[in-house]
Design a protein around this nucleic acid. Structure first.
Length: 467
RNA sequence: GCGCCGGUAGCUCAAUUGGCAGAGCAUUUGACUCUUAAUCAACAGGUUCCGGGUUCAAGUCCCGGCCGGCGCACCA
């Protein structure tokens, strides 16, 4: 069957529903439109036929009559899922349904596969994720979730632009994987005869752009981490990273809470929402609490990065956390926070002052050199963002990398490698700068009330079928 | 990677202690000039995820594999 190469489309279902809201039952408008979309339902009744057609804006009924519609006999043989282009008059039927009274029509594409359950849609996760096009066709919730993801990304971008941040792009193929603690994916470039890693974070490149003189930059892009999948982890995910010269971590916390609360207003119309049946408020300001304080409250005794490591290790063992020999007091404190306090942080909060040991790229705290000027925001018990005053001392940075290299040599395959290029970049002078990273997928989960990250990703990573 | 649960017609789901594998929708055919998940009638539709095993008999029980959901671990 040869189908048309184009269609002179000039009206959308959603607009028509609004424009012709005033038509009374049985009234004809005298106005002819060309609409197009997918046949969702078909009801034939002898010499009449009614189809529900959907386009990207909504649904409208097609009303065909044997006496008036060209090719009526073919029209009633349309299949659910077929795409049609229709020309006809806007009318409201006697029973009150706004309709396009079909004068002429064309099949624009046929649906060779079909699903029958107009009520339950498609429920099988495997089918929904492997054939998202069918899922989107069948399930309203999937369409609204992915559309809202687009709204979130747009709002993030517009707010960054409005704050004079310049959008940039940095390499995804990298000779070393750095900027975060994670196992990378490896690949190989034939002509260069070199192994590359897919980026786990764009962080170091972005700071090099600040060194170069771009004072406010952001990147909204995909990063890749070779780790397990779960309802909250996809191997590739989207991160916002943003750097502002002359700011410190306090400034960046203020920007962060205003950004996220602002996105909520842009997308949801309010800072107030519910997540998985529980209320959630993004209204600012968010509390700012040092990690050691939160850990102390959770374990019922005063702990800090200065608490003897042996005591911290005891508290971890009490919580069934396996303590590695390579962990110092700083790592132990961070682990203790995660094991004791993290999951209870429902409303947005900034956890601050992470130990140097777990923050190899963050600047030392101005009041305690064993801590850093770092923050992570949490909501619904999960990390939402991460940021800090950036370490801009090349000597300190080199020693931090060397410490990471020692951990790597001791078997920590997530420890960072020494990035000589980056240390050299710092030698050119990084002004005081604060940075921020936000997991966009998880932010979208909060804004769509989804508990599974796969729902907010159009094509989540799946295991290829075999066998 | 480990643990628990799941996979039956194109889709959504049934199938009793192991006893002839079913329904609704979709498809096909017919009826019907205002339907709304239209309705009515009829036909057709199966490697019960794959491979073994136990049994007179397996969708059901056992072993292995594949894929998915959830939890743990890792992280964002």
């Amino acid at each position: 069957m040869t189908t048309p190469y184009s269609f002179a489309h000039n009206a959308y279902a959603g607009d028509l529903q609004q424009t012709w809201d005033h038509l009374i039952d049985g009234e004809e408008s005298g106005v002819t439109v060309n609409v197009a979309g997918r046949v969702m339902l078909l009801r034939t009744q002898g010499k009449l036929a009614f189809a529900t057609m959907r386009d990207s804006t909504g649904e409208i009924q097609l009303f065909a009559l044997a006496a008036l519609t060209e090719g009526f006999d073919e029209f009633v043989k349309l299949h659910l899922g077929d795409w049609v282009g229709v020309a006809g008059e806007i009318v409201r039927t006697k029973r009150g349904e706004l309709s396009v009274k079909v004068a002429s029509w064309k099949t624009l594409a046929v649906a060779q596969h079909n699903f029958g359950d107009k009520w339950a849609g498609i429920a099988d996760f495997d089918l929904r994720y492997r054939h998202r096009e069918a899922d989107l066709w069948a399930n309203e919730k999937s369409r609204t979730t992915l559309a809202r993801r687009s709204d979130v990304v747009r709002a993030v971008r517009e707010r960054c632009w409005a704050a004079n941040f310049m959008e940039v792009e940095t390499p995804i193929l990298n000779p070393i994987a750095t900027g975060a603690s994670a196992r990378p994916f490896t690949t190989f470039h034939n002509a260069l005869d070199s192994e590359f890693y897919l980026r786990i974070a764009p962080e170091l490149w972005l700071k090099r752009l600040v060194v170069g003189g771009f004072e406010r930059v952001f990147e909204l892009g995909r990063v890749f981490r070779n780790e397990g999948v779960s309802p909250r982890h996809n191997p590739e995910f989207t991160m916002l990273e943003l750097y502002a010269a002359y700011w410190d971590f306090e400034d960046m916390m203020t920007f962060t809470e205003e950004l996220i609360a602002g996105v909520a207003v842009d997308v949801l119309g309010s800072t107030e929402t519910t997540y998985q049946g529980r209320s959630l408020s993004f209204s600012t300001p968010w509390p700012r609490r040092p990690m050691a304080e939160l850990a102390s409250e959770a374990v019922g005794e005063e702990v800090s990065v200065h608490t003897p490591r042996s005591r911290l290790a005891e508290l971890l063992v009490e919580r069934d956390v396996e303590v590695h020999d390579s962990w110092g007091a700083g790592r132990c404190l961070a682990e203790l926070f995660e094991a004791s306090a993290e999951s209870s942080l429902w409303e947005p909060i900034f956890v601050t002052e992470h130990p140097v040991e777990v923050s190899p790229l963050a600047r030392r705290h101005r009041r305690d050199p064993d801590l850093t000027e770092r923050f992570e925001s949490y909501a619904v018990g999960r990390e939402l963002s991460n940021g800090f005053s950036e370490l801009n001392d090349p000597v300190d940075q080199r020693s931090r990398f060397e410490e990471q290299a020692r951990l790597a040599a001791a078997g920590d395959d997530e420890a960072m490698r020494i990035d000589e290029d980056y240390v050299r970049a710092l030698e050119w002078g990084l002004p005081p700068t604060a940075g921020l990273g936000v997991g966009i997928d998880r932010l979208v989960m909060l804004m769509t009330d989804e508990s599974n990250i796969r729902e907010v990703i159009a094509f989540p990573t799946l295991k290829p079928l075999r066998g």
